[in-house]
Computed example of a mutant assay.
Amino acid sequence: MTLQRRILILATAVALLAAVGVLAVVRASSRADEKDHVRAGGPAVTPGAVSLAAGDGGRRIVFRNMAWGPHRDELATVATGSPEGARTASGVSCLRFHAAGSTGICLQADRSGVQEGYRAVVLDAHLKEVAAHPLGGLPTRARVSPGGYLAAWTVFVGGDSYAGANFSTRTSVLDLRTGRLEASLEDFTILKDGKPYRSADVNFWGVTFAADERTFYATLATGGRTHLVRGDLGERTVTTLRENVECPSLSPDGTRVVFKKRVPGLPAEAPWRLYALDLASGAENPLAEERSVDDQVVWSDDRTVVYALPGDFGADLYAVPADGSGAPARLMDSALAPAFLG
Rank of each mutant, 00 (worst) to 15 (best):
V320G: 10
D333Q: 13
V92C: 04
A131L: 05
D73E: 14
F97P: 12
E243T: 15
A79T: 03
S82I: 12
S281V: 03
R214Y: 06
A49L: 09
S334D: 15
E116Y: 12
L95R: 03
R143C: 08
H98E: 12
R225E: 15
A131F: 03
L233D: 03
V202A: 12
S161V: 01
D302M: 04
A99F: 04
T2W: 08
V263W: 05
V114S: 15
L336P: 06
A270K: 11
R143Q: 14
G314Y: 00
A335V: 01
Y197H: 15
T239M: 04
M332S: 00
G324R: 12
L176D: 06
A268P: 04
A99C: 01
A218E: 11
G265V: 03
I7H: 02
W272V: 09
Q4H: 11
A49E: 15
E74N: 12
E269M: 05
G117I: 09
A79L: 10
W205C: 12
S51L: 09
S161H: 05
H37A: 14
T169C: 01
R291Y: 04
R143A: 13
L233I: 02
S82V: 14
D56S: 09
S249P: 07
R72T: 13
G101K: 03
P286I: 12
L341H: 02
D295V: 08
F156V: 04
A44Q: 12
A99Y: 07
A19C: 01
D295I: 08
V257H: 02
R6C: 01
K35I: 09
T140F: 05
